[in-house]
Amino acid sequence: MGCVPSKVVVRRHLPGLGNPVVLASQTAFSVSEVQALYELFKSISSGVIDDGLINKEEFQLALFKNQKKENFFANRIFDVFDVDKKGVIDFGDFVRALNIFHPNAPHENKVNFSFKIYDLDNTGYIERQEVKQMVIALLFESEMRLTDEAVEAILDKTFSETDVNQDGKIDKEEWCNFVGRNPSLMKIMTLPYLKDITTTFPSFVFNSEVDEID
């Protein structure tokens, strides 16, 4: 009696968003930016099944507007984003992985992440057969045909430029030195879009952290 407020503030339930404050504290993103990323996440994760998780087909669909198109590197990035190997990417995975691509993220993290993408078998080395697998997949998907000899020439050139100790595999230090000499290779590890994500997805203001008046 008498203590029922005339206005009831209801926090809209956003399954999957988790705690944006915690995610912001773990990343280069502000709380608003985490909320804006949730708008992007919602749109990607509802591409095939609206379950609040991104599966491989949805990731593919978001990248290529075509879920039938298999792409080796899209699959690989998905697997690296899917830290716990659940077969799906939840919002936390999504934000923490994109954080590496933030323009303000430490360069060292970007170099380490790129190494992880290319270390297909997770052995701690980028091996010749892994590079060969990537090159062949890339050529196949680009419908380019090269002779075995030409592919081997690409591999020889690659290892002559990276594998300084000539043990037939690229270790982390060799990778750091190589990308240090070839900074253009790290361009793909930075997404300028992440700097103004709140302008790209302004609807977060309406959908997130809105106190509704009942």
């Binding site: 990248l63 590197f73 020439a153 020889d156 690659t158 361009k187």
Partner: peptide, 25 residues
Amino acid sequence: RPPTMNAFELIATSQGLNLGKLFEK
């Protein structure tokens, strides 16, 4: 015959590694 490229240069220009597409509406 064109000069041989380094594999990582080839890979870095591949579309699958271009996550910018996620942000295109």
